[in-house]
Design a protein around this nucleic acid. Structure first.
Lengths: 430, 430
DNA sequence: ATGTGGGCAAACAGCCGACAA
DNA sequence: TTGTCGGCTGTTTGCCCACAT
């Protein structure tokens, strides 16, 4: 319960180590956290979107902005800790970022640490709860393949075969369940203990529960609440406008003084990740050709917690918010989606979220060249292998296409040669 | 559900009018809201304390401050709306403030509006719940005097006498209770309907429930949760440091541009009120003599929701936070309390919270005079009657002592002649 | 293979006065 | 005057299977 101060790093001993595989399982297959010690790009715009989504309030047009705060900040990622809300079990991550000055940006940066990859656990299952599962009338019906894969085998000499399962959640609480194989036809059920869990976690039909059997032969249990109307944030403390200003002020101050700041990333509340590995950002923005009319694909999470690809076409390129955030790469690509059910997919994406399909030739003459195709504050990039780029996100499951390598001529039309990656102006108000 | 924008005033029609007397009853007898249209003093320091209390995190010593933001801002209070958290029923108020520039401060300000005084309702009772009250085993035992005072009389020709009570809460929800007079000896009880209320409001022994019978012959019901360890704010959205910065940035920006800003005041989470009627502030700071060793009294809320006086002695006068908030009147008075059980009473108070007792003579020579006893940005003050000062707080239940009137020579030692009440410097970062 | 519903027993909720503080 | 308890129902919980999809 030690308070973590501004700019302080949490001592190693006090780092409350949530179970990483359970955290990632709850966060979903598309969520990846950048490696500690690596360089990242922080987008205040995206952070602001997270606050807007959590408070259910859009940023007001009259809210002032910080001109000294650039749309993207190159930072050293000093610390990442995984957390879960004590009440709702909502997962979130706390990151300590430190903006780099132009000197530091010039230093060659190390290949990303070979930290544990954020892969989803192998021995797990995730089930969306039915009305019967959540009713007080009965227990939980375990899908047969799931029970056989992740639960310890039952002793079928008993009649009926049953055992006690003990599972731990993100807060390291124990939950005991009676696992029995009975009925006509036979099936796996969780009976005693199940309803306590349902009411404690406030689960309703449509929410999901997931079980993991890990390498240490421990059973882990996690939940994912369905996208309910909204977790209306208790705004009884601070107005959403103040929160918005606070996030900007914290980043602007950190940028001006090159000091550390702390942010929270809430993957299931947040429309898009806003702390991106620097290598992934550079690859997408400087090494990838995109143009209007180009086809692309992008990954989405399915209802069953797996991943699928959606296809679309780029319909425009330009600033999402020219007044407040000019020359930002955040959601700079306007897209149309192939499938008519695409109503819920966002009409704007960022370059690092998509994989352009370049199966047909591109005529370079269509795209004006930048005066400064490679910003001066960045190290040379050739000679790095793709595996070194710290891109352990599922997006990397794509095979790289031929356009990914070498120095492409430009990022996209409409950008001037402004010095985006330089350190920001001195923040004058502090 | 219309989003209230920054600097926008909520249209009259959309103002969700919570029942004012119920709100005040839940807020407690010491809480008063300044009158709409009046002038107030806003203390960012106190606002910051509210955030710290809500997030359970002290402000870190490295958190930067806004030098352009003065410790106290004189504001026009444009709007006050009462709210209650949908989940916890926690009451809070939203206020729209507009800092006044020095020109506006010079204009004579109107006597405070004769708005509805914030007096506690007369026909009400408040009971702290016992284990039996909250147990599922039984109902609610109504104190006899309370039942006779606020509930409609029972028809004692019935055997047993009983009736159905319908009470409305802050969200205008209806709650039905069976009110019966039975047992040996006879007593008033709420039976059917009570346990539904207890579980819906998550009441436990030690929490309080209150009933009001108002002038419109309506029965109102409210709750007050005991000071549980803490309502640990879901910090999964924004770090407490960012919240702190946000509050400062919002105030600083508003001060620099003389534009409106919105704050939330959460009386039961907040250590002290931080939006003070200007007249009350001026009276306490400029018209009242205080000195070290002086005795004073101050009001506190009792466990039974009434008010009582505690006595103490002033032990010091000076800045609470000289580095961050020099020359602030916020909690500028160090005090010692008479009663040994005073461990929970704060060691620092603000001048407007206390009533100094001047039954013995003071030697003016002990206190250095200010070079500028009356700041230039303020109107002359004489000729106003005390009732016009907008001090409808219970603190005004004190009788004014002779020192309250006329221009006393000073406020307190250690203050220089700095121009506190002038408009702040231009805020440079926006 | 698995969601839902009827049957049934055990547990709990909830109304009552007795008793004591 | 009022907090807690034992006694006594009525309702709910929760385990079992049958049956349907």
């Amino acid at each position: 319960l030690a308070a973590v101060g501004f700019g302080q790093q949490l001592p190693e001993g006090e780092k409350r180590c949530l179970n990483s595989e359970l955290w990632h399982a709850c966060a979903g297959p598309l969520v990846s956290l950048p490696t500690v010690g690596s360089r990242v790009v922080y987008f205040a715009q995206g952070h602001s979107e997270q606050v807007a989504a959590s408070t259910n309030k859009e940023v007001d047009a009259h809210t002032p902005n910080y001109p000294s705060l650039p749309p993207q900040l190159i930072c050293q990622l000093h610390n990442v800790t995984m957390h879960a809300d004590a009440e709702t079990d909502e997962v979130y991550a706390q990151m300590t970022l430190q903006p780099l000055n132009s000197e530091e940006q010039k230093e060659a940066f190390l290949p990303a640490d070979l930290g544990a990859p954020n892969k989803q656990p192998t021995n797990y299952f995730c089930k969306t709860l039915t009305a019967s599962d959540t009713s007080t009338h009965g227990g939980f019906s375990v899908p047969r393949r799931a029970a056989e894969k992740v639960f310890p085998p039952l002793d079928f000499t008993q009649q009926p075969p049953c055992q006690e399962l003990i599972a731990r959640d993100l807060h390291d609480n124990e939950w005991k369940f009676r696992h029995i194989f009975r009925g006509q036809p036979k099936r796996h059920l969780l009976t005693t203990g199940w309803s306590v869990f349902v009411s404690a976690k406030k689960l309703v039909a449509g929410d999901s529960v997931l079980f993991i059997w890990n390498e240490k032969n421990q059973l882990l249990i996690g939940i994912r609440h369905a996208n309910r109307p909204q977790t209306v944030m208790p705004s009884s403390v601070l107005s959403s406008e103040s929160m918005h200003l606070g996030l900007l002020a914290a980043a602007a101050h950190a940028a001006a003084t090159n000091s550390r700041f702390i942010i929270f990333y809430n993957p299931r509340a947040c429309p898009s990740e806003f702390v991106i590995p620097l290598a992934k950002y550079i690859k997408a923005v400087y090494h990838t050709r995109v143009s209007i009319g180009m086809r692309f694909r992008m990954l989405f999470e399915t209802e069953e917690s797996s991943v699928r690809c959606y296809m679309g076409t780029i319909t425009g390129i330009g600033d999402l918010d020219p007044a407040r955030w000019p020359n930002s790469h955040w959601r700079s690509v306007k897209v149309g989606w192939d499938e008519s059910t695409a109503g819920e997919r966002q009409p704007r994406v960022s370059l690092w979220e998509i994989e352009p399909l370049t199966t047909f030739p591109i005529y370079p003459s269509q795209f004006p060249r930048l005066k400064r195709p490679w910003p001066p504050g960045l190290p040379a990039f050739n000679g790095m292998k793709e595996e070194d780029l710290g891109m352990n996100s599922p997006l990397m499951w794509f095979r790289g296409n031929p356009c990914d390598r070498g120095f492409s001529s430009l990022n996209f039309a409409g950008l001037n040669g402004q010095n985006w990656l330089q350190s920001p102006d001195i923040y004058q108000a502090m």
